[in-house]
Structures are given as structure tokens and as C-alpha cells.
């Protein structure tokens, strides 16, 4: 029943045997211990599990692990490191855009997907892009400011660092 797949996760190729009904989220969290992507609803309604699949934001709970075969996945763990944080990570800190932190990884990955596609979004475009990522703590204001600040830094810094 197990399906063999090869998937590049955060730059590293993983050869795995996954179950036919196993979600990408479950694969990342349970098999690879990449727990940055969170399970908030398991129904694609909250955005806490957003990762990039070939550079595009997806709800990892709605993608089958087997579908990732031959593709590239980037999770929050694949962004910056202390001392070399991604502009989005830096901006989320500088703008106090983090509270409980549960939505933060998904929020940052969605924002990254937006900025890769649209380096200079209007606030309305940022609002729309992250409207599928629920946050119950912050009221979103500081998140919106952080995304704009990161966009600016990414534009300034040679179109940003791509993961």
C-alpha cells in the first residue's frame, strides 16, 4: 500500500514511503519532524499549515504526500537561521507581528508566496493574500505592516533572497 516518493524538502531530497491517504502535512510533521507547519483545522480553513509547493502557497493538510512526489517543498524551517533571518522573519519580529506564534509559520509562508509573485503589493493585495490565514491574537495590523516592510527590504536587497 505504501507509495514510494522522492521529494525535495528545504533543499534536501527525501526518499519516503507514504500512505495513499497521508497528507503532506502529516508527512512533514510525523515523518520528518518538521513541526513548523501546524494543524489548526485539517480542513484547509485556517492556513496554519501553509508551506510552499514549487514556490506556491498550499494548505499542506489538503495536499496528499504522494502528490509531492518529484516536487519541491519549502517549510518555515527552510527559511532563515539566527543571524541570517529571511526579511519576512526579521520584519515579523521588528513589527511585533507575532503573538502566540501558532499562525506565524503559515502566515510567513503565505506572505513569501505573495512576495515571490508580487514584490510590491498594495495593502489590499496583502490583506487578500493572507485572508486565508487566520490569526486570533494580533488583529493583523502589525502583520500587514511587517509584510510591507519585508517587501521593501526584499526589493532593496537584489529582489530578495529566494529560498
Amino acid at each position: 500500500m505504501a507509495i514510494p516518493i522522492r521529494v525535495k524538502v528545504n533543499g534536501q531530497v527525501e526518499a519516503l514511503e507514504v500512505a495513499p491517504d497521508e497528507s503532506l502535512l502529516s508527512m512533514l510533521r510525523e515523518r520528518l519532524d518538521l513541526t513548523g507547519a501546524k494543524e489548526g483545522c485539517n480542513e484547509g480553513e485556517c492556513g496554519a499549515c501553509v508551506v510552499l509547493l514549487d514556490g506556491k502557497a498550499v494548505n499542506a493538510c489538503l495536499v496528499l504526500a504522494a502528490e509531492a512526489d518529484g516536487h519541491e517543498v519549502t517549510t518555515i524551517e527552510g527559511l532563515g537561521r539566527p543571524g541570517a533571518l529571511h526579511p519576512l522573519q526579521k520584519a515579523f519580529l521588528a513589527h511585533q507581528a507575532v503573538q502566540c506564534g501558532f499562525c506565524t509559520p503559515g502566515m510567513i509562508m503565505t506572505a513569501l508566496s505573495l512576495l515571490l509573485e508580487n514584490p510590491a503589493p498594495t495593502e489590499e493585495e496583502v490583506r487578500t493574500a493572507i485572508s486565508g490565514n487566520l490569526c486570533r491574537c494580533t488583529g493583523y495590523r502589525q502583520i500587514l505592516d511587517a509584510v510591507q516592510a519585508a517587501a521593501q527590504e526584499m526589493r532593496a536587497g537584489a529582489q530578495g533572497r529566494r529560498p
Partner: peptide
């Protein structure tokens, strides 16, 4: 903040 923006923060699950 750092542990929360890097995915290092561990919640119950």
C-alpha cells in the same frame, strides 16, 4: 520571537 518565526517553538502536538 525568534523561536516562533523559525518554526522552533513546540506546541503540544
Amino acid at each position: 520571537g525568534l523561536e516562533k518565526v523559525t518554526g522552533a517553538a513546540r506546541y503540544l502536538a
